[in-house]
């Protein structure tokens, strides 16, 4: 029990490499997504109905299914590689979109106060009072499912989270002497917010963003499960998993492999998020 004997943790030195390996996984997925056309052995949408649900290693017609084939005889490996694109694009785009909109509105509300604050924060309240999943389902049902709409819907339902954190952080930052000084010296609101306030709150926002990133990957999968994800036949890990789960007992590879990829990606992103949080939160260093 000697390790427990020193409750005050010793400060960690810098960015330990060990702590950042999850980032390498994320980078790997990003690379796979970018270079999908060169990496994938086959067209991910090419069907082969006589080669349906074949186990890994099967050869059928022109296909050699390294990781098996799915319910339409498509190559699972190729679909996993291409599928990384959808999962990443949805997560990145929705996090960046909702993060930018939310943070900007939150900062402005906190800085301007008065009417702006009232309006923005009331709207935030409205959105936060509706369960995000339900709002997402309603809006996708209305807009029709597609890659762009899924991104828009996720951004629409998630921005209030950023707005709230940006708002509360800005409130405290705005009272700091040097921010007040900048404003007194005649700097415009935009300049004050983006030059002085933003750098101070970006840490807190990015902690939220990494958590949200993993959540968005799962959200996309959930929408696919409800038939509201990206349009078929586009491969996404979520849609592969949700159709493949019907074959759990007879063709485990159809769902298990994309499921594993999704799992590892979300895990890696969450671990990265933890690392970022610990780094920014001095208590844990």
């Amino acid at each position: 029990m000697s390790a427990v004997a020193s409750p005050r943790p010793h400060p960690r030195q810098g960015f330990g490499l060990r702590r950042w390996w999850p980032l390498a996984i994320v980078a790997l997925v990003v690379l796979a997504a970018i270079f999908a056309p060169w990496l994938a052995p086959y067209d991910p949408n090419q069907q082969n109905l006589i080669g349906r649900l074949k186990p890994p290693g099967t050869v059928s017609r022109a296909f050699h299914y390294w990781l098996g084939s799915d319910e339409l005889g498509r190559d699972v490996l190729s679909r996993i590689i291409y599928g990384s694109r959808v999962s990443l694009v949805v997560a990145f785009a929705s996090v960046i979109l909702s993060g930018t909109v939310g943070t900007t509105l939150g900062m402005i509300a906190a800085y301007r106060r008065g009417w702006t604050e009232t309006v923005v924060m009331r709207v935030v309240d409205v959105f936060l009072s509706i369960p995000a999943v339900l709002l997402a389902i309603i809006t996708v049902a209305v807009l029709g499912p597609s890659l762009v709409n899924v991104i828009l819907v996720l951004a629409l339902t998630r921005w209030p989270r950023y707005a709230r954190i940006a708002y509360s952080q800005t409130l405290s930052v705005a009272t700091m002497p040097y921010v007040r000084l900048a404003a007194l010296m005649g700097a415009g609101a935009t300049r004050v917010l983006f030059r002085h306030v933003l750098p101070n709150i970006i840490g807190a926002v990015s902690v939220v963003a990494t958590l949200e990133f993993g959540l968005m990957v799962l959200f996309e999968a959930g929408l696919s499960f409800l038939g509201l994800g990206v349009q078929p036949p586009t491969a996404s890990w979520g849609s592969m998993l949700s159709t493949g789960r019907n074959y759990v007992a007879t063709a485990w590879w159809v769902a298990t492999l994309p499921g594993l990829c999704l799992f590892v990606l979300v895990l890696a992103v969450n671990l990265t998020g933890d690392a970022v949080r610990d780094r920014l939160d001095p208590r844990f260093r």
Partner: peptide, 30 residues
């Protein structure tokens, strides 16, 4: 979504093989 999506995708492929350019537009039942 209520229809068998495997059939719809196979039809897309078969029409594509003949030279048509088909895009699937799935929307909810309503």
């Amino acid at each position: 979504p209520v229809f068998d999506q495997r059939i719809v995708q196979a039809i897309q492929q078969q029409l594509g093989d003949a030279g048509f350019s088909v895009k699937i537009a799935m929307s909810d039942m309503a």
